[in-house]
Simulated assay, not measured.
Amino acid sequence: MAGRVIFHVDMNSFYASVEAADDPILKGKPLAIAGNAKKRKGIVVTASYEARAKGIKPPLPLWEAKNLCRDLIVREPRFERYREKSRQIFELLFEYTDLVQPVSIDEGYMDVTDHINGSAVAMAEEIQQRLLDELGLPSSIGIAPNKFLAKTASDMKKPLGITVMRKREIRKNLWPLPAEEMHGIGKKTAERLALHHIHTIGDIAEQEPDRLISLFGVHGGRMYERAFGRDDRPVDPEKAKQFKSIGHSRTLPEDAGSLEEVKPVLKYMADSVSARLKRKYVYASGIQLTIRYSRWETVQRSSRLKAPLDDAEAILRQAMLLWEESWDGEPVRLVGITGIDLIPKGSAQKQLDLFSYENEQSEWEKEEMLRTLNKKYGKEIIRKGAVRPPDSS
């Protein structure tokens, strides 16, 4: 391949693989990671490939997973252990090049253009084998001239796959794929594309760029470029370290002297931040609360989340905890909520934890009920309510 040589290293069924590496009895068995395993509650976070073969995939409720596979082994998540294993993975990758960009706990890009002695495939095979031998963790690696094609390639063969994607092979290997297989296109966007008779990546390539832009904005132009395998983003080790945020603040109509007074405004801002996170296709790894007192002193407090999220209720909950820890009892004139340390949704699977699985299950059940009712009685017969901003007049 001429030009750059980019690897996308993606660990296979990471949480389940870590558990199997620590307990060899689990190897080759149908295994699910889920909260509150003893009570059959919660949602499957991830599953081994043996469990996936039985139809068990996130975010399946645990009781349903048990019905699909009677001999399913269930383990509760150990997030500190997963973070430690992630650190070891990236330490190994950095041995090959300084240009490593982590994009989530279990995947990252490598620019190995100037570090290949022999063939790119041989280097990928060595990395894959070392991850397996030294850490006990299987991976898939995509090799391509840019990040988009490398990510696409790594998804093509799992587990333990190594796939090369060359630009000259795009028409043959990329265009027949469903549009939803394009990195950055989710289920809802794929449904919107289908309404315009655009079903495959090849269909995207056949559109006029202006039409896609008129339908999907900047994202439409990006789809068109990706359909031809164009992506000039560099592998940037500093990108994962950059402070990235989405926030919203509001000056109160009157100074507030209690949580009860400020809570409606916090709720409105949590909804706003959540909506913007979803529009940008990112999760927040932390929440920051801003309080400006009537005396014009401003304080900011932040906390990391146990799992990246974009959920308004969880954002509000965290902001209220920060308020209780930070507010000194004096009148407040402005409050703000900011989602920090953002993670692209297309590059990072949402990580659930023991403290969120019940809420996740509740949300899943609500969404399923809405889908069922709308299907039975007509589209959009029932919708989630929107929060109206507090009157500031």
Rank of each mutant, 00 (worst) to 15 (best):
I162C: 05
D98S: 14
R171L: 04
Y283R: 12
G385I: 08
D328P: 08
L68V: 05
N374W: 04
E95N: 13
L305Q: 09
I381S: 13
I141T: 01
P59A: 14
S392W: 03
V164T: 10
I291C: 12
I287R: 07
K66T: 00
A32D: 03
S393W: 01
V121T: 14
D203V: 03
S303C: 12
L316F: 12
F228V: 02
G142F: 00
P24C: 11
A65Y: 02
P389W: 01
S294F: 07
G161D: 07
P234A: 01
K278T: 09
L31I: 11
G142I: 00
V74S: 12
A194T: 09
E261S: 10
K147N: 00
A179E: 06
N173P: 00
P209E: 10
I246P: 13
M11K: 04
K278Q: 15
V218P: 01
V45A: 15
L149W: 01
N359G: 15
A120R: 03
P145L: 00
F7W: 02
L174P: 02
L309S: 15
A348W: 02
L305N: 12
G217Q: 06
L93E: 05
Q242K: 15
H219W: 07
S48V: 11
Q101V: 11
E313H: 06
S393R: 14
L215I: 01
W63L: 10
L316Q: 12
I56S: 09
